[in-house]
Amino acid sequence: MTEILTPRLILRRWHDDDLIPLSEINGDPEVMRWIGDGSVRDLEQTAEDIERWEEEWDEEGFGLFAVELLGSGELIGCSGLSVPEYLPQVLPAVEISWRLGRQFWGQGYASEAAHATLEYALQDRGLDRVIAVNRAGNDESENVIRKLGMELESDTTEPVHGFLLHIHSIDLSEYDA
Rank of each mutant, 00 (worst) to 15 (best):
L127Q: 09
E59Y: 14
I96V: 14
T157I: 15
W98V: 01
S72V: 10
N138C: 04
A116W: 03
R125E: 02
E140D: 10
E60D: 12
D124H: 13
V94Q: 10
I76L: 11
A66C: 10
E140I: 11
L69R: 02
T157H: 09
D124E: 09
T117A: 05
G77I: 06
E54W: 10
R102C: 12
R135K: 13
S154I: 05
R125I: 08
A114G: 10
E112M: 01
G61A: 09
A114C: 09
P159Q: 01
E142H: 04
A113M: 00
L70V: 01
L127P: 08
S79G: 07
A47L: 03
E60V: 03
V90R: 06
L118A: 08
R102L: 12
A66R: 06
T157V: 13
E55W: 15
H115Q: 15
E48T: 15
E140A: 07
I50E: 11
I131N: 01
L152E: 11
L118V: 10
K147R: 10
S79P: 04
G106Y: 06
Q103S: 12
F62E: 06
G162I: 08
Q89Y: 04
A66G: 04
N134E: 12
E55F: 12
L127N: 07
S97Y: 07
D128A: 08
E142G: 06
E51L: 13
A136R: 14
T156S: 11
L70R: 11
R135D: 05
S111C: 06
